[in-house]
Design a protein around this nucleic acid. Structure first.
Length: 807
RNA sequence: GCCCAGAUGGCGGAAUUGGUAGACGCACAGGACUUAAAAUCCUGCGAAAUUUAUUUCGUGCCGGUUCGACCCCGGCUCUGGGCACCA
């Protein structure tokens, strides 16, 4: 039994690809550019995770497939090596990231990535920690600042006590730090922000037109969280005006009290002297609560009366003003009108504090708004001139517009999306390129002075003071103002690692340029990215940030497109034996072990065969071995038989032609829709057919080698060479097929009686109903079900089925 | 609570548009080869009944539409994911 040695074959072809530069593309001269991007990994010391490989292989298959289709495919790779994941790991192991990261990168590239057989053009790498790279990350910051898209602001920010730094809203998951799972607290600090909210509407609108995985789009829509409503101006009795945001202006007549967020600055002005100590005590009592406590599901509502009253602009009614922490300072205006009859939260609060509940939208029979809030549709009641109008449509419009005429309301839209907090009080990142001058204020570092290099520091631990470790390095932060020359101080925070990764794909084609972040010509030719494959865990992190940055650079005139990725495909997640993989379970898959035993091709193929690529798969131990066994069978089937040769004539037998052509068609279609598991199954069927029938044919062998090439590139090259070709199989072309031969000349008709399968008939293709009927009625398997019955209806589906309905 | 996706043999999973449910593979069983084992090859493999070359049942649960439903509709249950005191 002929077998092949995968380790020998694979190292042979790795060397050949390297010396012949098979994987390189002529970026300037390419005629049919196809930018195939995969999410670059961060080089952890543990090595590549099987999840990384699953993602990369699925992407590489597209790259190789497109290459065979005649595209000039650019498939670059880089390392996302700045940030807390790298720094935390170095800290834990008592090492320095500057020493550790280059070693990890080397190991990733040389002993792992290259062994998997990715068609990566290694002449265009990006390493985010290299000064040649982060110089341009800093340039991004300066550019955003100069264009009014970056600003510094003091306010409550998310603070992770574990990582000792602030975090962006996107990096807080259920009140916990995305990296270390510490409970995040609020801290008042001056921080740098990017104006992500400036493009909230565009980011949302464009989603409808993007060719992206639907679940990724849904996650982004939820995160941006648009809600439409009105801003209404109320007036404190004997005090100032203030505005509230509501999505239900139709229920204004039902507002029986107002609620301010306890942090609302206006409270200090309006609270009555006798209630002031009560408010102070309340603020004290909630000050120690974290977001997790505050949002705990079963938590009872709390709040205090301020002693103040507000006037409802629709009817001048005097209603009490309360302060309660169920109203958040960060959303809308930090104050609400409470309509307990039609809002669940207000209802709960009103019951607890015995506040009035007034029905203004007619609830259906049997529902009592005193018992439970009714938020459904209905007509307005107790609403003066607006009674009888459908609340959510006309009612809403009329009430808002009548107030708008008096200047007391306007239509408004609110987004859940917050500006991106990019400051980090950590060491391992690109320093924020800003200088604070006592005379000139904040001044961006001039472009020619970039990069602001990260100094080498032996003790780089974050100290939790709210300042970055760089604040301890005087030689770093003491400087002079680039404008006036006065002694000045550098910003000592570094920027969020997600800024590094928000632009890396612009850099890849332009790595040779040290005078610009990306070359306009090459960028025009290669971007936006044609295909981006990655994990959906980045839906509202990297993918949102990079969409925003693209839009920002576009608005500043640096890019002539506003969306970075033409197509994004979210791959699934791998589990093992039905369970999530984790260190604590001890069920992590070690890819190297399988690759060293069965070869990268068998490992690649098994990863893709486990399940649907877009849904993920369940890794079973025996799978890689079984795949190697298939590749052995395929090898035997494709190679000339021992002591013989392959038939040089094209196959003529119809059944074989059917298998050959329909397999080529199906494999191409399946790869195009990321259905790798079924593509492999189709190849198995073809191999089974030729093995069973002892067919050795040159045409079939060459076709199989090329079908296999995207999935198992090393073996495909080996077979191609055995079949007599000098050049790489990737310089050949994807096999063509004959549409007519994809169907058998004879088709199997299914014969049903009353919808139940009663027989099958092999008949020539394309027969008419009238030609088939007599044959059906004559067949004994069918006629026995027709005895003594009347046929009332005949269903006929060409080349497929006949169904006789009898009584 | 709202939104999205999903539930198919012992297992992983197939099934373009409503038209043969279970492709392909794993595991298992039997056989061949072998001193033996491994590897490889061949055969079988949803369940029940059976006169075994037959019938009935069967795609999470209940109901509906249809000649015909894994697929469409209505109502549930469970699993995974996103959002969530967001006004």
């Amino acid at each position: 039994m002929a077998k092949y040695d995968p380790l020998a074959v694979e190292s042979k072809w790795r060397r050949r690809w390297e010396t012949e530069q098979t994987d390189r593309v002529d970026l300037a001269g390419a005629k049919k550019p196809f930018y195939n991007l995969m999410m670059f990994p961060y080089p952890s010391a543990e090595g590549l995770h099987v999840g990384n490989l699953f993602a990369f292989v699925g992407s590489d298959i597209q790259g190789r497939y497109h290459r065979l289709l005649g595209y000039d495919v650019f498939e670059p790779m880089g390392f996302d090596a700045f940030g807390m994941h790298s720094e935390n790991f170095a800290l834990k192991n008592n090492r320095h990231p500057a020493e550790m990261v280059p070693k990890n990168i080397e190991r990733f590239r040389e002993t792992q990535l290259k062994k998997v057989g990715l068609m990566v053009d290694w002449s265009h790498q990006a390493d985010t920690t290299s000064p040649d790279y982060y110089r341009w990350t800093q340039w991004m910051f300066v550019t955003l600042y100069k264009n009014g898209l970056a600003y510094r602001k003091t306010g409550p920010v998310n603070w992770c006590p574990g990582c000792k730094t602030v975090l962006a809203a996107e990096q807080v998951i259920d009140g916990e730090c995305e990296r270390c799972s510490s409970v995040v607290t609020k801290k008042e600090m001056a921080q740098w922000f990017f104006k992500t909210t400036a493009f909230a509407q565009e980011l949302l609108d464009e989603l409808d037109r993007l060719d992206w995985s639907e679940r990724t789009k849904v996650a982004q829509r939820n995160w941006i969280g648009r809600s439409q409503g009105a801003e209404v101006i109320f007036e404190v009795v004997g005090g100032p005006e203030f505005s509230i945001f509501t999505t239900r202006p139709d229920t204004l007549f039902g507002a029986t009290y107002m609620v301010f967020s306890p942090e609302h600055p206006l409270l200090d002005k309006i609270t009555s002297p006798e209630q002031a100590p009560v408010l102070a005590a309340y603020r004290q009592s909630i000050s120690h609560l974290t977001e997790v406590d505050r949002q705990a599901e079963d938590r009872e509502k709390t709040g205090v009366f301020t002693g103040a009253y507000a006037l409802n602009p629709v009817n001048d009614q005097k209603i009490p003003v309360w302060a309660a922490d169920y109203v958040l300072m960060g959303y809308g205006t930090g104050a609400i009108m409470a309509v307990p009859a039609h809002d669940e939260r207000d209802h709960e609060f009103a019951l607890k504090f015995n506040l009035p509940i007034l029905e203004v939208v007619q609830a259906p029979e049997g529902l009592d708004v005193r018992k439970a809030a009714y938020a459904g549709p209905g007509v307005l009641v107790n609403s003066g001139p607006f009674d009888g109008l459908p609340a959510k449509t006309t009612g809403q419009e009329r009430i808002t517009e009548s107030l708008a005429k008096e200047g007391k309301a306007k239509w408004a839209v609110n987004y859940r999306l917050r500006d991106w907090c990019v400051s980090r009080q950590r060491y391992w990142g690109p320093p924020i390129p800003i200088i604070y001058c006592p005379k000139c204020g904040p001044v961006p570092v001039p472009e020619e002075d970039l990069p602001v290099k990260l100094p080498q520091m032996e003790n780089y631990q974050p100290d939790g003071s709210g300042l970055s470790p760089l604040a301890r390095e005087e030689s770093f932060h003491k400087t002079v103002c680039p404008v006036c020359g006065t002694h000045a101080e550098r910003e000592t925070d570094v920027s969020d690692n997600f800024l590094c990764s928000a632009w890396y794909f612009y850099r890849y084609p332009s790595t040779q340029f040290d005078d610009r972040p990306f070359d306009p010509e090459l960028t025009k030719k290669w971007l936006p990215v044609d295909l981006y494959v990655g994990g959906n865990e980045h839906a509202v992190l990297h993918l949102l940030y990079s969409r925003w940055l693209c839009r920002a650079l576009h608005s500043c005139g640096y890019l002539d497109f506003a969306e970075p990725y033409k197509k994004f495909v979210a791959h699934g997640m791998i589990v093992r034996d039905g369970a999530k993989m984790s260190k604590s379970r001890g069920n992590i898959i070690n890819p190297d072990q399988y690759i060293n035993e069965f070869g990268a091709d068998a490992f690649r193929m098994y990863l893709m065969f486990m399940g649907a690529y877009l849904e993920g798969g369940d890794f079973r131990d025996g799978g890689v071995k079984a795949m190697k066994a298939f590749l052995d069978r395929l090898y035997t089937a494709v190679c000339p038989p021992e002591g013989g040769t392959l038939d040089p004539q094209p196959p003529a037998e119809p059944e074989t032609l059917f298998w050959l052509n329909s397999t080529v068609k199906a494999v191409g279609q399946d790869i195009a829709r990321f259905s790798y598991n079924t593509a492999i199954a189709r190849m198995m069927e073809l191999v089974n057919h030729i093995t069973k029938n002892k067919i050795s044919n040159k045409d079939i062998s060459e076709t199989l080698a090329r079908l296999l090439a995207p999935l198992a590139p090393h073996l495909a090259e080996e077979l191609w060479e055995i079949l007599g070709h000098q050049e790489s199989i990737f310089k050949s072309a994807w096999p063509a097929f004959d549409e007519a031969a994809c169907r058998r000349p004879e088709v199997e008709y299914v014969i049903q009686v009353n919808g139940k399968l009663r027989g099958r008939l092999n008949l020539a293709q394309g027969l008419a109903q009238a030609e088939i009927e007599p044959l059906v009625l004559a067949s004994p398997a069918v006629s026995k079900w027709l005895e003594g019955r009347t046929i009332v209806k005949k269903i006929y589906v060409p080349d497929k089925l006949v169904n006789l309905v009898v009584r």
